[in-house]
C-alpha cells in the first residue's frame, strides 16, 4: 500500500521533530550548567565561586544532592576563585526564626541540605550542613571569621546560590562582588 503524506503534514512533522529534538537535553538548566564549563566534580570542594544550585537544586540536580542554600566565602574580593576561606561561619536565620550555621570547607564552600529525619541541624565534614526544616525565605545571613561577624546588607528572598547574585569579576548593574569578608590587604 502506498502512503502519500500531504506536503503540509510533512513540513509540520519535520518542525515538530526539530522542536522536540532541540529540547531534549538542552533545557535552560542544561545550558546554564554547561556554561559553567568542565571542571573536576564529585566532592564538596569543587567549583568554588560558582552558583551551586545550578546543578544541586530540588528541581535540577545532575550533580547529586539538592541544596537549599550554598556558596563560597572569600576573605577578599580579589582572591582567586579557588582561594575561598576555610572555617568561616555562615550564620543563617530564616523568616520562621530557625537559625543555623554552616562552616566552610577548604575551598570556602558551604552547602545546606534538608533532612526531615533530623531533630536539629547537623554539621558534617567539608562544608556540609543538614537542617531538619525547609528554610522560610527571607533569610538573614552573617559571616563570622576569627570572632568577627559581618552582616549581609540585604536579605535573601529566594536565590539559594550565593553566586546567583555575587558573581565577582563580572560585577555589573545587576550583580555584585563575590561574598568577601574584608577589604584589608
Amino acid at each position: 500500500m502506498k502512503v502519500v503524506l500531504p506536503g503540509f503534514a510533512l513540513v509540520a512533522g519535520l518542525i515538530v521533530m526539530g522542536l522536540v529534538g532541540g529540547c531534549i537535553g538542552d533545557s535552560p538548566e542544561d545550558q546554564q550548567a554547561a556554561a559553567l564549563g568542565n571542571q573536576r566534580d564529585g566532592d564538596p570542594e569543587h567549583r568554588p565561586g560558582q552558583p551551586c544550585l545550578a546543578c544541586h537544586s530540588t528541581e535540577y540536580s545532575p550533580g547529586g544532592g539538592a541544596f537549599v542554600l550554598a556558596g563560597t566565602i572569600y576573605m577578599r574580593a580579589g582572591d582567586p576563585d579557588s582561594a575561598g576561606v576555610e572555617g568561616a561561619e555562615v550564620i543563617m536565620k530564616d523568616k520562621a526564626g530557625h537559625q543555623f550555621t554552616a562552616l566552610t570547607n577548604r575551598t570556602g564552600n558551604f552547602m545546606v541540605t534538608v533532612d526531615s529525619a533530623l531533630d536539629a541541624p547537623s554539621q558534617r565534614a567539608r562544608g556540609r550542613l543538614r537542617i531538619p526544616w525547609q528554610p522560610v525565605f527571607p533569610v538573614e545571613v552573617s559571616v563570622g571569621i576569627d570572632g568577627v561577624e559581618k552582616d549581609m546588607e540585604t536579605l535573601i528572598w529566594r536565590e539559594g546560590s550565593c553566586a546567583g547574585c555575587h558573581v565577582g569579576s563580572q560585577t555589573g548593574t545587576d550583580h555584585v562582588e563575590r561574598v568577601w569578608f574584608t577589604d584589608a590587604p
Partner: peptide, 24 residues
C-alpha cells in the same frame, strides 16, 4: 533585592542601593 524585583527582566523592576543599578 537582586534575587527579586532587582532583576532586570522581572515585572516591577526596581533599582536600589544594594540591588539593580543603572550604572555599576
Amino acid at each position: 533585592s537582586l534575587d527579586c524585583h532587582g532583576m532586570a527582566g522581572r515585572p516591577l523592576r526596581l533599582y536600589a542601593k544594594h540591588g539593580l543599578r543603572m550604572d555599576a
